[in-house]
Amino acid sequence: MNPLAKMAAILPAVVLLVFVRDLATPIAFLALAYLVLIVGVSLSIRAVAVLLLAVPGAILVLGFGFSLWTDAALVANTHPVLQIGAWTLYSGALQIGFATGLRLGAILALSLIPGLSTTGPDLVRACVQQLRVPYRIGYTALAAFRFVPRFGHELEIIRQAHRVRGAHRGRGPIASLRRWVSYIVPLLAGAIRHAERVALAMDSRAFGAYPDRTERHLVPFRARDVVFMVLFWVVSAALLALFFPWAPPV
Rank of each mutant, 00 (worst) to 15 (best):
P248R: 03
G65R: 03
L116N: 06
G120K: 02
Q160I: 13
V185K: 12
A54G: 02
T70S: 13
L200V: 08
L239T: 05
H168Q: 07
M229P: 08
L16E: 01
D122A: 03
L62G: 06
L110T: 14
Q129N: 08
P149A: 00
E156A: 14
A54F: 13
V230T: 12
L16A: 08
L17M: 03
Q130L: 15
N2H: 13
S44R: 05
P173L: 12
A106E: 06
L89C: 03
V20M: 11
L53V: 10
P56C: 01
F64S: 11
P245H: 09
H153W: 09
I192G: 01
Y34Q: 04
G92F: 13
V124G: 02
R213W: 04
Y183T: 09
Q130R: 12
A161M: 14
L4E: 00
P186C: 08
W180C: 11
F29Y: 06
I38D: 02
A238E: 04
W180H: 11
R193I: 06
V235H: 13
G190Y: 02
V226F: 05
I158G: 11
S176F: 12
F232E: 10
I158N: 15
A143Q: 00
P26A: 00
L131P: 12
I107H: 04
P134Q: 01
V227Y: 09
A13W: 07
V75W: 12
H153C: 01
G138H: 01
V81K: 03
G97L: 10
V198L: 05
G40S: 10
R193T: 06
Q129C: 10
V14C: 01
F19Q: 03
V230Y: 13
F228M: 09
A86M: 13
P26I: 02
A9H: 11
V148H: 00
A93K: 13
A106K: 10
D22T: 07
